[in-house]
Structure formats: C-alpha cells, structure tokens
Amino acid sequence: MTEPITGIVTPIRLDYRYTPGASTSQFLRSIKEGKLVGRRCPRCSKVYLPPRGGCPMCGVEFAEEVAIKNTGTMVTFAVVNVNFANRAVDLPYVTAEVAFDGTDTTTMVLLKGVAPEEARMGMRVKAHWLPESEWDYSLVNIDYVEPIDEPDADFESFKELL
C-alpha cells in the first residue's frame, strides 16, 4: 500500500440511556415475551402502540391494557433505494407504516415477501417475529411484516392514520 492518504473515517458514537416510564416499560416486558400490548384512552378510546403514559390528544392517563394482534394494515410505505451505514438489507426494500389491528397508531417496520413495485397502501400484513431465543425488550423482535391473503383495507378505514 503506497498510495498517499487522502481520506479517513472517523466514527462518532453516542450511547443513549433511556428511561421508558411505567407504561412503555410494561410494553417492553410484554414484547420480550412475544406479546404486543397497547393502551386505550378512556376518553377518545384510541389505542396507542407503543403506549405512553397518557393520551396526547385528551391529556388523560391511560388505564386499560389492550392485547394487539399480529395482523395489520400497511397504511403507507417508502421504497428505499439508498442504503445507509450498518443496514444489511438488500436494495431496494420497503419500509412500511403498519397499523396493527386494534390500534390507532402506526409502527415503522420492514416489509418483505413482496416486490417493492407491488407494495400498496392498504395491504394486509402479518408480523414475522424473530426466533424466540432472540427476543429482547425491543420492537426489533418483529423482524418484518409480510403480506397475507386478504383483500386490501378500504382507504376510508385508515385515512386518519396518514
């Protein structure tokens, strides 16, 4: 190696210590066991996943826990054509915003099992979890979602989530 040095790579790293609070802590303990648990607002009845301490619209504390299913609707998506560092996914791939059934919020997750050009708003999908041995206190336990054999959801049914 005799070429002169013209560039260097200087990694910059920050470690965050995050205190999730009582509600999100419960959510993280549940997801460690392979369960999705949201919370319902006692006033507007909307279900948040992941749950926070209270409803940001109504300003009241959440009370009721709600078990969430593994199926949902992809309300919108983006086709990713440019990779970023440390992401080992073949290009192009689809990042989906999924409203899991029973929730009124969306979660960003990788979509697999369909060509990017065939991804559609309203597609019905199912969560594919990592092997149980790899479950952690993290939404990353859901490795990706994949399409299921159901008719697309009606736009009117999810337009509020966009």
Binding site: T6, G7, I8, V9, P11, I12, L14, A85
Partner: peptide, 10 residues
C-alpha cells in the same frame, strides 16, 4: 447511535 464520517484529509 453511530455515524461513520468520511473526511477528506487535504
């Protein structure tokens, strides 16, 4: 969070 900055040295 980690970013790998690539810098030209001049």
């Amino acid at each position: 969070m980690e970013f790998a900055y690539t810098r030209s040295t001049g």
